[in-house]
Design a binder for these strands. Sequence first.
DNA 1: TCCACATGTAATATATGCATTACATATTCG
DNA 2: CGAATATGTAATGCATATATTACATGTGGA
Lengths: 133, 133
Amino acid sequence: MMSPESMDTVFQALGNAQRRRMLDFVKNHPGCAVGEVAAGFDVSRVAVMRHLAVLEEAGLIISDKRGRTRHLYMNVVPIQMIHDRWSSEYSAMWAGRVLDIKYLAEQRTAEYPDAPDRAASVTHLPGERKGQT
Amino acid sequence: MMSPESMDTVFQALGNAQRRRMLDFVKNHPGCAVGEVAAGFDVSRVAVMRHLAVLEEAGLIISDKRGRTRHLYMNVVPIQMIHDRWSSEYSAMWAGRVLDIKYLAEQRTAEYPDAPDRAASVTHLPGERKGQT
DNA sequence: TCCACATGTAATATATGCATTACATATTCG
DNA sequence: CGAATATGTAATGCATATATTACATGTGGA
């Protein structure tokens, strides 16, 4: 089982594009060194180390120091955990959710004719601004 | 397609246990009011509103104000997006990753006999402390 | 109308996040 | 040994996150 704190650290680690890119680099270069990662990014080596530390604390990266070099590997287990949980928790919704909310919205609209029909917003993604369509 | 900024906001929104609980409440009480959510949590109503705003900015919640009441609905689309992306991006790894890293670790161990065998850590999850097993 | 209710906004305090530069430690190799 | 290399740590600045209390706005009903 995955504790709430673990999920916090994983989601927080993934909540930064720079960090996701670094994770991606490690994924595509298994066993790479810290410096190799740093070379591919436009921020200081210390910043890269901090990001890698966050990823490692989240369990998304595993490291292995040999001599003066620390080798990095991605660990998919935390992501897999979340993926599996989502599969079981939302699989039903993914089939019928849009229609469900549309149904609810229409129900409400019937009760309160002045209410805006929000069914169209169901497919909203962040980045778009609501109501601008 | 989902922009990196969108993923940032979604992951950041999910990176807080309190907020995930609120999202869960909305999921289980579709159409509930802000005050109803606040009643179930031990923080101030303003704090709850802030959390709901974060969730809404991430697209995870849709709201619909009628009269003086704002009704809340969960939107699974962003989570579904991430889920789908992960499915396609890591499906191969989920089958063979543990063995792959074990293989790599054993390779390295053979080259550098003093190196610790990290294969056992592959299933590491945050919250455990590495190397304690 | 007037009051109660549901929500929204302002001002504020403290903690965490993300980046920097400068310095320290440890390891390899001539 | 001593210099180059790879990584780690310390001190710091600035922005964002999370929470609070006090006050404002808008809506519904007796």
